[in-house]
Amino acid sequence: MGGSRREAALAALTFVALALLPLAAPAYYLQFGAKVLLVGLAAMALNLVVGFGGLVSLCHAAFYGLAGYTLALVSPRYEAASLFWTLPLAVGASAVAALLIGALSLRTRGVYFIMVTLAFGQMLFYLFADTDIAGGSDGFYIYTRPELALGGLTLVDLDKPTGFYLTALATVALATLLLLRLTRSPFGQALAAAHENERRARALGFPVYRIRLAAFTVSGALAGLAGYFASVQFGYVAPQMLGWHFSATILVMVVLGGLGSVTGPLVGAAAFLGLEEVLKAALPDHWALALGTVILLVVLLLPGGVRQLADAALGPLSRERPPGKPLAAAEGATGA
């Protein structure tokens, strides 16, 4: 696990450097940085089940969006709600949804799992897009951002780009710490073991279903955490937040960053969103085509993500498994 220790040190250094960014960068970059961090958090959450658990889920956008919608629905229109109760409520809603969807979806394997998670995710999408619970397909405004205050004293002003950026950064850093500890704990080892060889893990007496369900729930809750802050940032929620295109997009980020590490998806999110900005600026009419082509080439030529490029240039960095191998192993284990 030396690799993971080195990863933790590298992550800590990066977070310290990112905390200094407000001293140098203008507000636009802070807003973009916060967006990258939050989408990256959703991708890290997804990676817990995809990279470590070997379960390709296509419904994480639903957990991300559900937390945002929960905030939007409970926020009073003219006064700020406290973050101290809206955040646990929103994350809790995502966790409950993940628990229920996971309990059903994890009864299936492989490609069924992909299809079932996709279908349940879209169920939540249609629930918000087709009914007028929260503005239907037009979306819903959060007129007043929640406040982070104690006894009338504002601790951090979330309306200011710097305050919001630092809050997002602290949240992502805490989540990274949690994920690093979780993947190294006996629970994380058991999750990886079930991925490596399900039959053997079962024979050794691991409660594979319960372990996976726990991982799926934690992962859904963390995606909800990202979605909560994302909706605070934009002051707006729309059904597209829950749609499966976003699930697939964060999956691309996971693969782009490399499956084997906790923080890889953050790098993947930065690479993806950065590329998207560049393409939108350079090719305003064809950026989606260019983006699709890039994804296509990455999948065909770079199964290990951007890390593979870095490895080719610099020699192997920290890595616990060779790229691409974990999923092949999982497939062998389930007999596909």
Binding site: V56, G110, V255, I295, G324, L327, E331
Partner: peptide, 10 residues
């Protein structure tokens, strides 16, 4: 693997 198929078809 399925993951590559999902991404490529996306």
């Amino acid at each position: 693997d399925h993951l590559a198929q999902v991404l490529l078809s996306f």
